[in-house]
Amino acid sequence: MSVITANLKTTLLGTELRNPTILAAGFLGVSAESLIRVYENGAGAVTTKSISIESRNGHANPTVLSFGHGLINAVGLSNPGIDNYIEEIKTVKEKKIPLILNTIGDRNEDFITVAKLGEAAGVDIIELNVSCPNVIHKKPYYSDPELLSSLVRNVKDAVSIPVIVKLSPNVTDIKEIAKAVEDAGADGISAINTVGPGMIINIETAKPVMAFKKGGLSGPAIKPVAIRCVYDIYETVDIPVIGIGGIMNGKATVEMIMAGASAVGIGSAIYYRGLDVFKKISEELSEWMDNNGYTSIKQLVGAAHES
């Protein structure tokens, strides 16, 4: 049974997607075959885990839990390092699957190295995860427009494939950040990364549950934050936005696209609805569009804004 109807097709920065659902970074991105399986379950594109130059072990368990309204995670960006990940990228690209390489680094040069190796291995888009602190300036990238601008300019100079920046919602003014990123030459923005961090305490033992104590929130609880961020970003910039955060079903996808997203990232919904959630959401989206007289994704993008 095919769920792919013509009206779900969309183009993201020159890459054709059969539907607007994209696997968000950090979910099932450990191996090529895992990413391929997600694609076979209906995703329009897939995103790798955050990949750095050197391998990272991440934090101790518990690292991922579900608290009733979403997930809390402190995986700690574990990854095998770009050299050990190149084969996985090539294997995914052999299948012609649209692939976003999510990169992480401590300094601009780290992002550049990973992005260049990824480009050479065939990825379609580079996504900069700027949730890590810059070790030289000892500040987080995500909340500093100047640091972000220099990063975007450097990476843009180094590669010729599109570069998008994944923004954190945990800033005072996301519009200012979005503008800086666009002005520096970014081709697109993805938003949002996890909210918080939050904490959960087990009261019987009087101990924080996560080994790292704190963790980023995702899933249904953060959807209104994600919708507001994407709405604000769409008001501010002209580059395309991938809307991520709490998308569980077709209607939430419509809402996110109406806020201004050209495509949506999906992660936590895998926990609630299974690996084939991409197929399910595409079907629900297509049905909603048919019932409400929309024939293309384009008609929906930014529909919630006053023109």
């Binding site: 099932l28 450990v30 191996s31 895992s34 368990n61 690292t63 991922v64 936590s268 895998i270 926990y271």
Partner: peptide, 18 residues
């Protein structure tokens, strides 16, 4: 080796299987 235990993180993957 496992992290989440409920099929989202991908840590315990063998080929495409969790």
């Amino acid at each position: 080796f496992m992290k989440c235990g409920f099929g989202v993180c991908g840590q315990c993957i063998i080929n495409g299987f969790r």
